[in-house]
């Protein structure tokens, strides 16, 4: 498979300033060194609890935030050859000049704040097109109508304000805006969590359809595991600024290895009365990302914690092709969990 994006030891710390001279006294370690490859045409699910840094990762990839350190390699198809650019350092102007800006897009969580309330839908969708290329107004209009049709709206919606639409329709407009620049890669930051259940399915199906039609690559950020299972081909699980496990979706759901992944998956409220959940109840809460525990980040809540866990940071190791885990006990967790909670 062809890589589209490579994250190398990506770090994003938000400084906390204090004192009279506003010196940096500490930092929120939102993303603390992650390596991740995103392949062309896949939908990578990024899963984790609130505050684990998944949104920061996604916003850093599209350069809404500047990374503290690390590299983001973008593989851009230029005719038949592939040009690899490190986009973690270059300026926003250079990003625009090298035509990468429009290739990386994002759909936001809350459709009520993702559109300027004073703009007509026409202008909302025209904005990205006008920002990146020059088009005549007639061409622009037909492009906009084409985009609206793609997401299941029509030209009758052109001259309306965002507040006249329901949440689901607004999310459709946001999707239309994101694909307006013909992107390669779209970050979907919890695109359905603000929507109703019945509308959520519409948007998920729309996203699937568009992915096939335009050969898009998605990074689907969510905390909703059933949604991510439905749409993703591969899943990466984050905990407190680090990736703890990544594997193809089916494999991850069948044989999760990391204790955190196990707990996460066992706690899914499945809408099926015949399924008896046996949740692994973790004690305590996620530690603060300001002072993460030394060693394995999960060591404070892990039911199988060993001395080594709180001393040494486990590396993300591939235990089988495509399945990587960051856990010192990776080889024995299955047995440990079966012993403690019964086999699943």
């Amino acid at each position: 498979m062809q890589k589209l994006l490579e994250l190398k030891n990506l770090v994003k710390h938000y400084p906390i300033r204090g004192g009279i001279f506003r010196r940096q006294v500490n930092s929120v370690k939102a993303v603390d060194g992650i390596d991740l490859d995103i392949y062309k045409g896949e939908c990578l699910g990024l899963v984790g609890e609130s505050g684990c840094g998944k949104t920061t990762v996604s916003k850093t990839i599209v350069r809404l935030h500047d990374p503290t350190s690390g590299e983001i390699h973008f593989h851009k198809q230029n005719g038949s050859e592939t040009v690899v650019t490190d986009i973690s350092r270059i300026s926003h102007n250079a990003l625009k000049k090298s035509k990468i800006r429009g290739k990386l897009q994002m759909v936001f969580q809350d459709p009520t704040t993702s559109m300027d309330p004073r703009m007509l839908i026409k202008n909302v969708i025209a904005e990205p097109i006008k920002g990146l290329e020059k088009t005549s107004s007639r061409e622009l209009e037909s492009r906009i109508i084409e985009l609206l049709n793609l997401v299941g709206l029509s030209k009758y919606h052109l001259l309306r304000y965002p507040h006249e639409f329901s949440g689901g329709q607004r999310q459709r407009i946001a999707v239309a805006r994101a694909i307006a620049t013909k992107p390669d890669f779209i970050v979907l930051d919890e695109p359905t969590s603000a929507l109703d259940v019945s509308v959520q399915a519409q948007i998920l199906n729309l996203l699937k359809k568009l992915q096939e039609e335009f050969n898009l690559t998605y990074l689907f950020v969510t905390h909703h595991l059933l949604v991510v299972k439905y749409i993703s081909t591969r899943i990466a699980v984050m905990y407190l600024g680090k990736i703890v496990e990544s594997a193809p979706t089916d494999r991850l759901f069948e044989r999760p290895v990391h204790p955190y992944t196990n707990a996460l998956l066992s706690g899914i409220p499945v809408p099926n009365v015949n399924y008896t959940p046996r949740p692994i109840i973790l004690s305590g809460d996620v530690p603060s990302p300001i002072d993460p525990p030394p060693g394995c980040r999960f060591s404070t809540r892990c039911p199988f914690v060993k001395e080594r866990c709180s001393a040494e940071i486990p590396k993300l190791k591939e235990i089988e092709p495509g399945h990587s885990v960051a856990c010192h006990l990776a080889s024995e967790t299955e047995k440990l969990i079966a012993d403690k909670y019964g086999s699943r």
Partner: peptide
């Protein structure tokens, strides 16, 4: 509504309810 919620063993396309509330 039940059809539009992703299941653990979801293989088919999700059923969606057309229209809006």
């Amino acid at each position: 509504l039940l059809g539009s919620v992703p299941k653990l063993l979801q293989k088919k396309t999700l059923q969606s309810i057309e229209g809006n509330v």
